[in-house]
Design a protein around this nucleic acid. Structure first.
Lengths: 143, 143
DNA sequence: CGACCTCTTGCAAATAATTTGCGTTTGCAA
DNA sequence: TTGCAAACGCAAATTATTTGCAAGAGGTCG
């Protein structure tokens, strides 16, 4: 009967253990997780991974979670947490990910331009940064 | 002996048909292509897909191509074309992709902030927009 | 509370993307 | 041209993701 069950029921969906756990796990994690990561963090008994995928697809279509693309082999997911919007910095060398909230990203000008030029109504965007983290820069001899 | 062979040799790598074709194919295409798309566009005889993957990895490590993450099941690639930097708009409904060059994206402020807060030296970023294209908006009844 | 119907799940198998081992071929420098 | 390291093709192994189906859980109504 947690807040997640309520949210799900209000959206006309069945509240199940799997869905609640996914939302809880993603909320507790500052970094986006892969389906595999999510399953690993489930308390026993762990659900089948097909279930994790199906639930991620559902939660995603409800707008409760979203996928984050970090140019890896697999997708990662994070909660939308009511619209708070985050970005990442990924280290090219070691893969470390930092996450920060996007107070600064004002892309409304670009979005308006896209509307004008292509007729696309932009509803969301994805912005990730890649570079070298302090540790790798020190070791790697980079400046 | 094309310009691509030269580029590759100057970087100390063997110039092979596979690599030259990939660069040519990507240059001719305004939209980022998946490894499969790339292979399909090869003139006969088509290379094995393992070769395509290996070459994309190599070209990518040389900075001649880069991967673009559009939240799909597979990666896509584009040429870096000497630093020109592009962004996309992807339609949530039909998957149509528009590409535009990034005259407007000034993220240097954010990048400086990242440097200050996390110590990451940002070398690149990835910015994609998602929304509804004109056709889908018309059909879908959205406004 | 129990019947009942629907939506979910587990399981197994099918797809699909990507990677790897290995013997053969090719690019290219001497 | 010759020789060798770097690429390639091919086949098989991994890994990610999806799907079909029968059994099980969630929610509603009497």
């Amino acid at each position: 009967m947690g807040k997640h069950s309520d949210t799900l029921r209000q959206m006309g969906r069945t509240a199940t253990r799997g869905r609640e756990e996914i939302l809880r796990i993603l909320e507790e994690n500052p970094l986006p997780l892969s389906p595999r990561d999510i399953r690993e963090r489930f308390p026993e008994p762990k659900p089948d991974s097909a279930t994790v995928y199906r639930n991620l697809a559902l939660l995603s279509s409800l707008g409760l979670v979203r996928s984050v693309a970090l140019h890896e082999r697999c997708r990662r997911y994070e909660t939308t947490n009511g619209g708070t919007h985050r970005h990442r910095v990924v280290c090219r060398a070691c893969g470390k990910i930092e996450s920060f909230s996007a107070m600064l990203c004002d892309l409304s000008g670009i979005e308006a331009d896209i509307r004008r030029r292509f007729g696309f109504k932009v509803t969301d965007h994805s912005l990730e940064f890649f570079g070298d983290c302090p540790d790798c820069r020190r070791k790697g001899g980079g400046k």
